[in-house]
C-alpha cells in the first residue's frame, strides 16, 4: 500500500501552496527547527518539555477529534 498521490498543495499559489498541510507533519518540522538566533525574548518553545507537553495535548486531541485520518492510506 502506498499513498504517494501528487503533491496536495502544489497549487496556483506556488510550489508550497496554501492549505491542507497535515498538522502533525507540520509540527515535526516547525517544532524541530530549534535554532534560536539569539532572540531578545527567549521563549521556551524550543525547549523540549513545552514541546512535548503541547504535542501531547495536540495529539491526544487529534486522535479524539479526527479518528485516524492517517490510519487509512494517509492524510489525503
Amino acid at each position: 500500500m502506498v499513498s504517494s498521490e501528487p503533491a496536495p498543495w502544489q497549487g496556483d499559489e506556488g510550489p508550497y501552496g496554501p492549505i491542507g498541510v497535515p498538522l502533525v507533519d507540520l509540527l515535526d518540522r516547525v517544532m524541530a527547527t530549534g535554532v534560536v538566533i539569539s532572540g531578545d525574548v527567549v521563549i521556551a518553545i524550543a525547549e523540549v518539555p513545552l514541546v512535548r507537553l503541547s504535542l501531547h495535548a495536540l495529539l491526544s486531541s487529534v486522535s479524539e477529534r479526527l479518528p485516524a485520518p492517517w490510519a487509512d492510506g494517509g492524510p489525503w
Binding site: 500500500m1 502506498v2 499513498s3 504517494s4 503533491a7 502544489q10 510550489p15 508550497y16 497535515p22 507533519d25 518540522r29 492510506g73 494517509g74 492524510p75
Partner: peptide, 8 residues
C-alpha cells in the same frame, strides 16, 4: 504502508 508528503 509507505507515505510521502511534500513538497516542504
Amino acid at each position: 504502508r509507505i507515505e510521502l508528503t511534500g513538497p516542504w
